[in-house]
Design a protein around this nucleic acid. Structure first.
Lengths: 242, 242
DNA sequence: AAACGCGGTTTCACATAATGAAACCGTGGA
DNA sequence: TCCACGGTTTCATTATGTGAAACCGCGTTT
């Protein structure tokens, strides 16, 4: 009813969801296929421009056709457009700034934001890149990302010295269990945040939904009070994505 | 050496480079394959999230996985990032505003801009959508797009009444022959522009490179004087893309 | 210098997956 | 009621896709 070879090739493309460069052998292990099979599938993907191969490093990465295709669907499928009404609805309910973050390597990127109805000092612009080591949404992106992300973050050269790594690991485990993360003045003095994950239909982490505000207003009590509303909004957003 | 079924499936994906919604029968014709073959290939693409099918209209469109993959490569492959240095270099050479446009249906979208070093009145922001019926870059996107685009533009409900269709067809044919398009005060009073195409490695039109400025400064003579520089910059940009 | 290990590439025999023709089904129009 | 069309399923056929094995090049170890 379907075509097995095609599904194998697509599985290869999906290896690149959160990794930029992969060798033939790495791909072979990820998709559990014979390396000669993978070799031929890669040749087909490369020939049509969906992957490119770096001649020197022999690593593959996503090709230009992916961008070209995405340029066509961006307006209709971009979560920062699709989810905006729900972000506004949530902002009106909780009164603070609402943001969406995705992970890109060892950074998180703010892809959408709706600002608080209350007075605020300053909001970082959409498109900003922040380290993955601090902040509530960073913790969500680490906790629910691939299991290797924790180690990568801890080994990253940008790891802040004031945070004990074993403590961090424990935090991440607890966050995964609780389903949300908080931060109080971790990234910026006087600022607090609470964040929850947003998943795809096949339970892969897509992004982090974050509510942030001044720490004198967004207290732990206020976060707990609003947590059900935030989690419900995240679930609604999951249904709004294709 | 490669896998035929995979290449067929990728050909199906490439049907969506400039069309949003397609039926099984349309796809079958475009890729010249048996409809039962196409049916199974579509099932595989849909199953992995690369295409979605509208239950009511029975049309297929690109799925969420394309966006997810592109989110990974956007920073490294997005032309509006990659080509920025060359846009700045060209701006410094010709002194006027430089823009990149892509076609999206019956509109063109400005995906990048570097503003003039001279005084200017106002520049439309990146992301703006303009009709495909007027402007130099519109003509480039029509002339070098798929052959059906001319008819689509002419049949579009937004066609301006003051432009004779046979004259427009002749203009488009001439532009394709000359390799550039000009416009003087077509979209906005007092503004002129010259535009050239940027192609992919396999000679598909990717986008239009445009130089624009006030019509008293950017005269026909000035355009012709700068045309070799603009064409050379477009060729350099083609080599800067993956 | 020789042997070894590893990643990438090619070969080849084999089994089955992919294919396309034909039939079927549902729907809308004449 | 009949017909045309698009989508879906069936089935016989064979060409394709596969994986084991071998080969190649390169760097490392002995």
């Amino acid at each position: 009813m379907t075509v097995r070879a095609v599904e194998r090739a697509l599985d290869i493309l999906l290896c690149f969801l959160d990794r930029k460069d992969l060798t033939l052998t790495e791909i072979s292990k990820v998709v559990s296929l014979n390396k000669s099979t993978v070799y031929r599938l890669l040749s087909s993907l490369e020939g049509k421009g969906f992957l490119i191969r770096n001649q020197e490093t022999e690593k593959y990465r996503l090709g230009f056709r992916i961008w070209e295709l995405s340029a066509n669907l961006n307006r209709d499928h971009d979560p920062s457009v699709l989810l905006l009404p729900e972000l506004v609805r949530l902002r009106d309910l909780v009164g603070e700034t609402i943001s969406l973050y995705v992970r890109d390597g060892m950074e998180r990127v703010r892809i959408q934001a709706v600002e608080s109805t209350e007075s605020i000092r300053r909001v970082a612009p959409v498109g900003i890149r922040l380290p993955l080591s601090v902040g509530a949404s960073s913790k969500i992106l680490v906790a629910y990302g691939e299991t290797t992300v924790v180690d990568q973050v801890l080994n990253d050269s940008g790891w802040p010295e004031g945070i004990a790594k074993p403590f961090y690991r424990q935090q991440i485990a607890e966050i995964k269990e609780k389903g949300f993360a908080t931060s109080i003045e971790e990234r910026e003095t006087g600022t607090a945040a609470v964040s929850v994950p947003i998943f795809s239909r096949d339970k892969q982490l897509l992004m982090a939904l974050s509510v942030s505000g001044p720490s004198n207003r967004l207290t732990i009590e206020k976060m707990k009070e609003n947590l059900p509303i935030i989690k419900e909004a995240a679930q609604r957003m999951e249904t709004m994505l294709p």
